[in-house]
Structure formats: C-alpha cells, structure tokens
Design a protein around this nucleic acid. Structure first.
Lengths: 184, 184
DNA sequence: CGTCACATTGATGCCTCTCAAAGCTTGTGG
DNA sequence: CCACAAGCTTTGAGAGGCATCAATGTGACG
C-alpha cells in the first residue's frame, strides 16, 4: 500500500510482520509503526481519504480487510458496533501507553521486572509464552541483555526461575497493609 | 483518584502533569502513563466500572471532567459525537505509535532527525515551540544529549540552525535549489 | 547423529546519563 | 541604564550499561 493511495479500509494482521513507513519531504524514510500479529491498523483510514504512509510486508503476511464502505455503513447503522470499535481503540491506546512507559525505563533488569509486574495476575508466576527471544524484542532489548537481566534479577532474589516460568519474589515486607506513596 | 474506586468519567488535562500508576500484587509500583497537558485520559472508564490505577498530580493541575453518565448518554443518543470520540482515539493511538517508534531509535542524533522529519510540513523548517529543554524531554533525552545531537547533526551538515529554527538539509542528491515539492 | 534454533556467558566498545562549570539571554528593580 | 538573578544553552570529563561480536551449551526434530 502506498502513500497517497485512496484508503480502502481498516486491517487486522493475522500473521507476519508489517512496517508502516513514510517518505518525508526531504527524502528520508521514517518508520511510523511496526505491526505485529493480532493488531488492527490503519484505523485512521476510516476518517481520511488516503493513506499517509507506505505499508511494507517484512515477511509473508496475512491480513483481514474491513472494507471502508461496508464498515462505515455498518458502524453508522449499528451504534453498538461503533461502540465496540471505540472500546477496542481505547484498549489499544492503553496498551500502547503501557509499552511506551515501559520503554522509558532504561535499566534492563528494572524494565523486565516491570514487564512481569504488568502481567502479574496475582499468582506472581509468569509463564513465558513463546521464546525468551520474542520477549526480548517485545521489551526492546537484545536477547543477550534479557538473559543477563534475568540472571541479575535472580541473583538479587527478586525473581525465581523454573524452566519457562518466571516468578516475582514479593518485595512486600511482612506488612500486608502498605500504603502507596506518591513521592518521586 | 485511587485504584478500585468507582469510575466517574473521562478527563482532559489542561495544565500540570499527572502520573498514572498501579500497585502490583507483589507490592511494587508501576507507572502506566504520564499525562501531559492537552491529553485526554481514563477513556477506558467509559467501558469499565472502576479505575485500575491511581492518578497522582505531580504538580498543580487542572482537568476537565466528562462525567460518565452524561457522556455515555450523549454518546448513545448522538452517534456523531461517538464518531468524533472514536476518531479522536484513533488519532491519539496513531500519535502514540509515532512516539513509540521514535523511542525505538537509540542514537540521539538519528532520533532527533526523525523527530524533525515527522514535523516537516514540507518547508523543512521547524520552529522550536518552547525551549529545547522541553523538546528534550519530549524526545526522551537529557537536554545535554539533545544539544550534543544538534551540534553533531549540524557538523554533519544534516541540519542547519538559525536561532530557534531548525532546518533539515535535504538528503536528496545535490539539489542546488531546495524544491519543497519534489516529485519523483 | 547431525542440524538448527534457542539459551547462556564472555569481552569489548560506543553512547548516553550524570555531574560540573561556564557562557548567554531575559526580566526585574534600583 | 546598569546590576543582579534566574533559567536556558553549551561544552567538558567520567562512568555505567546496553549493543555487538563471539563462542559454547542445550534441546528438539528428522
């Protein structure tokens, strides 16, 4: 899909990887977003007439297309479906903010720990879905850095490892009544 | 606002800075998002009954509140307003993705250059709104790093500086004339 | 049993952060 | 108009940490 083309609709990526990029006025190339499986993209095409970026498949990829006219009509006619789209966007936005904030953390061990905390469902155990290498790219680290970070955290007894499972060691002292404090 | 409280609605920050954070099951603290002026936040409150995070004001701050019940009713009754909300979310999501991708760039000079390219309206000139220090925080760099990056880029003749203005030097082949509108 | 991908650890270098100091700009008050 | 203060800008020196390159270990699968 090319910059300036008429927008045909919204997409959902089922497999592969896409790169959304833009050619800037000075001739440079800017990557706007890397799409990963399970993501919808080009939502803005519903509100604009043309795409403002190129989309390149970095590997064989499969997508669902929601044709603009159909989707628009459906959304207009059926408020519930629009409500659902909105809720999905809000969720995506929230997820994006989480990832952004995670990336603000420079220290690899800290970043990994926060990542695990975000996924903590209360059990404190995180079963790595997929390989650690994938987790590394998700975290924006090289796999070596991730391995070292995990080793460091384990050495500091802040996590425990068991095969593919990662368990956060509670840093809550024996006082179950802990007041969150704001100071920074 | 505290974790688990009943959600009262969506907000818009007019001034100040807020930090959204969550206490994780193990007692740790995770920053989910830092809200800056001009941003809406807690959009998810429209779809959930309670907040899943604390919101702390890091300075005196002023917000608009869109009460949940009012807003929900209005959105239900008036599809156009819902459509507008949706479009705003899509825009926010896009902006977030841009910032995320920018942060993927480790090299300070490269990141600065991409930042300028993103704001290039065709003229190639970017007038720094506010101070360079602000631009630095927006870029996720220390101000020293930004100054050095700018100096480096200027030394490499990739940008030109003129007071508060920054101009991207075209990296298209040797155009003696800078044609803002270059067609290939 | 060989191959391939993941996992792990070591050594090195570069780059950004940090701390520090000096120049520069702006506004305020005497 | 000048003096002073406060904040932005710029450059320097040093340190720490992640990326990179490299080598070895480990597990799955044919």
């Amino acid at each position: 899909m090319r910059q300036g083309e008429k927008s045909v609709g919204m997409f959902f990526l089922t497999s592969g990887r896409l790169r959304m990029q833009r050619v800037t006025p000075d001739g440079g190339m800017v990557t706007l977003h890397v799409v990963r499986p399970g993501e919808t993209f080009a939502e803005a095409s519903l509100f604009a007439d043309s795409y403002q970026c190129d989309i390149i498949a970095e590997s064989d990829a499969a997508v669902w297309l929601y044709p603009k006219v159909d989707l628009t009509r459906r959304l207009r006619e059926n408020p519930d479906s629009l409500w659902e789209l909105t809720s999905g966007l809000a969720r995506s936005l929230h997820g994006m903010r989480l990832r952004y904030e995670l990336k603000q953390i420079r220290s690899a061990p800290e970043r990994v720990l926060q990542y695990l905390r975000l996924r903590d469902d209360g059990t404190g155990v995180y079963h790595a879905s997929g390989t650690l290498k994938e987790m590394a790219t998700e975290l924006g680290l090289t796999h070596e850095a991730l391995y070292r970070a995990l080793a460091t955290l384990e050495r500091q007894k802040r996590i425990r490892r068991n095969g593919g499972d990662l368990q956060i060691m509670s840093n809550r002292r024996n006082d179950p009544f802990q007041t969150p404090d704001s100071a920074d």
